[in-house]
Simulated assay, not measured.
Amino acid sequence: MKYIALFSLLFVVSFLPAQSDAPAPDTEKYAEDVASLDNILEALYASISGEKGEARDWDRFHYLFTEEARLIPTGKNKEGEVGYRIMSPQEYVEGSGKWLEENGFFEVEIFREVAEYGSLVHVFSTYESYRSKNDEAPFMRGINSIQLLNDGNRWWVMHIYWLGETEALPLPAKYLPEN
């Protein structure tokens, strides 16, 4: 009986939200960003986008993610081997934030495919990247595989796993907007 009670307690505790020592973000300021699937995806792209020299709202960016979220770029290295890197949202900011601000970067969703089952949501989001809003052609395209959670109160980004388009691996027509 003691083991059943212990198992039950561990089961219930495993579904409680993780606690953090970090100060609580301004939930009212970003509440609209996490109110719908469309809003959280728009906020995700907007939070990393901006003109050269324009500071990003990294508090907004962090607010979109669960504490354990991971960002995972993948692709071939110079030797032609497929690899990946796993980062927390903070590690992404530390590794890419300065570059995004110094060079200008806009990522725009051009196509979306959504699969949903209860609180589990997966989005295949095709993107184009620009250095400025005024650029006519993207310098990069790819697909973000985004896993999200809707806990009944708000939306959360769990993971983003992405692959950029290459000459050897063009984007399939089924993941592009119809002309």
Rank of each mutant, 00 (worst) to 15 (best):
S49G: 08
S49W: 03
G50E: 12
G50S: 13
K52I: 13
K52F: 12
G53S: 08
G53T: 04
G53F: 06
E54N: 09
A55Y: 00
A55P: 06
R56F: 00
R56I: 02
D57K: 08
D57P: 07
W58C: 07
D59K: 12
D59G: 06
D59N: 11
R60E: 14
R60F: 08
F61L: 08
F61M: 10
F61A: 07
H62Y: 14
H62P: 00
H62D: 11
Y63R: 00
Y63T: 00
L64V: 10
F65L: 05
F65M: 05
F65D: 01
T66F: 01
T66G: 08
E67D: 13
E68N: 15
R70K: 14
L71S: 02
L71N: 02
L71P: 00
L71D: 00
L71K: 00
I72C: 06
I72A: 01
I72N: 00
P73Y: 07
T74H: 07
T74D: 03
K76R: 13
K76E: 14
N77R: 14
N77F: 13
K78R: 13
E79A: 14
E79I: 04
E79T: 11
G80S: 04
G80Q: 07
G80H: 05
E81H: 09
V82K: 09
G83T: 15
G83C: 12
G83V: 12
G83H: 11
G83M: 15
Y84C: 05
Y84I: 02
Y84K: 11
Y84W: 14
R85K: 13
I86M: 15
I86K: 12
I86S: 14
M87E: 11
P89N: 04
Q90C: 09
Q90A: 13
